[in-house]
Simulated scan of single mutants.
Amino acid sequence: MINKESMSKRILILTPNPDHPSHHGRWPYVLDVYREALAGIDAEIFDQPWSEPIAEDYDLILPLVAWGYHNAPNSFIGAMTAMAAAERRVFNPPEIVSWNVDKRYLRDLAEAGVRIIPTLFTEGVTDEDVARARADFGQIALVLKPAISAGAKNTLIWEGDRLADVTEGAADVEDRKATPPIGPAMIQPFMPAIQSEGEWSLLYFVGQFSHAVLKTPKSGDFRSQPDYNAHLRVLTPPPEALQLAQSAIDFIGRDRLLYARVDMVRAADGGFSLMELELIEPDLYLTYDPEASMRFKDAVEAAMRVCGCGSSDHVH
């Protein structure tokens, strides 16, 4: 008889759907970074596309590189639901990951008192929506983005009058020109600090702060991702940034999250406003802080010690 206790633990990292453009991006490099960070862990590391059924048994499944979910959100949520139904041990948990797919989760955070960028949610951006947003926000420059998106896909700064006059914006990470979002979308005031100071990303492992990265877009751009040659550096975050991030983490529950990235920008009053709470496949910026990989490894080891699975799981 095989003694399962003596068998090596098995961890599965989910990767992009090979049928989608995201599969041709830089995800293999990101996967290698995670593999290197977990090199000393007592477990074998496997990977497979999130779009494929999981046929083997794993002690832990990590959605860490599940890029491209925004190209087929219903399929992705279906995959998460199937993992939950099969009582797979997934961290972050499937129900939290599914909630995080649609950026309208920001409404839940705002209703709980977490300060977000002022946002008009709409089922489809119209000229009337733009006019209403400008009146509400008191400024001309707006950010238009889909409710389900990643990598700044179809995200525009809009200062014009008629959406029909939009010319295509810069290419996104999948080499497609940005156009106004179709379907459920968000309209926000453009935050000038994104270009002058940059976007702060605060990283948390098992509910504890790990490190922070300030991402400043290249001259003339507003996109702060490394894909667009933004300048990234590790810095100590301002106390107000930590306070905002902790309020977002606490909304979910510190012991329910293996990893999280809290993105924010400074508002005109000097405080901070939440841009996104990334709980699916955020870049954790492990290579920017020499201690981050060890903290991430410790978090994964903590998750592997958890018994059971699903929303009742807690990581300590």
Score class of each variant (00 low, 15 high):
Glu123Thr: 05
Tyr69Gly: 06
Val114Met: 09
Phe76Thr: 05
Gln139Asn: 07
Leu62Met: 12
Ala72Lys: 12
Ser98Val: 04
Asn92Phe: 03
Arg115Cys: 01
Glu123Asp: 15
Leu109Met: 12
Leu142Ile: 07
Leu144Cys: 06
Ile157Arg: 14
Ala141Lys: 14
Ile140Phe: 07
Arg104Asp: 07
Ala72Arg: 14
Arg89Ala: 08
Pro63Asp: 09
Lys103Trp: 10
Arg89Leu: 09
Ala66Phe: 00
Asp129Val: 03
Ala135Gln: 12
Ile96Lys: 03
Leu62Trp: 07
Ile77Trp: 09
Arg132Leu: 13
Asn92Asp: 04
Arg132Val: 02
Ile117Ser: 01
Glu123Lys: 10
Asn100Ile: 07
Ala147Met: 08
Val114Gln: 11
Trp99Gln: 02
Trp99Phe: 11
Phe137Thr: 02
Ala79Pro: 07
Asn74Val: 14
Gln139Ala: 06
Val130Tyr: 02
Arg88Tyr: 00
Val130Cys: 13
Leu64Cys: 01
Lys153Gly: 08
Phe91Met: 15
Arg134Phe: 00
Gly124Leu: 04
Ser75Ala: 15
Ala66Glu: 02
Arg107Val: 04
Asp108Arg: 14
Asp108Tyr: 03
Ala82Thr: 14
Ile117Thr: 11
Lys145Ile: 04
Leu120Glu: 00
Gly113His: 10
Thr126Gln: 09
Ile96Glu: 09
Arg134Pro: 01
Thr122Cys: 13
Asp136Tyr: 00
Ala86Asp: 14
Ser98Met: 13
Thr81Ser: 14
Pro93Cys: 11
Asn92Arg: 09
Val65Gln: 10
Tyr105Gly: 13
Glu87Leu: 10
Ala79Arg: 15
Asn154Gly: 02
Ile157Asp: 08
Ile116Phe: 01
Thr122Leu: 02
Pro93Glu: 13
Ala79Glu: 13
Val114Phe: 11
Val114Gly: 09
Thr81Gly: 04
Thr81Asn: 15
Thr119Asp: 04
Ile77Gln: 13
Ile117Met: 02
Phe121Ala: 05
Gly68Asn: 05
Glu128Val: 10
Arg88Glu: 02
Ala147Phe: 09
Leu62His: 00
Val65Tyr: 01
Phe91Ser: 05
Val143Lys: 09
Phe76Glu: 07
Pro73Glu: 10
Arg132Cys: 00
Ser149Asn: 10
Ala82Asn: 12
Gly138Trp: 02
Met80Cys: 14
Thr119Lys: 06
Ala84Asn: 08
Ala141Pro: 02
Arg107Asp: 08
Ala85Cys: 06
Lys153Phe: 09
Lys145Arg: 10
Thr81Arg: 15
Pro93Gly: 04
Ala86Phe: 03
Ile116Arg: 03
Gly68Phe: 05
Leu156Ala: 09
Leu109Asn: 11
Tyr69Glu: 01
Glu95Asp: 14
Phe76Tyr: 12
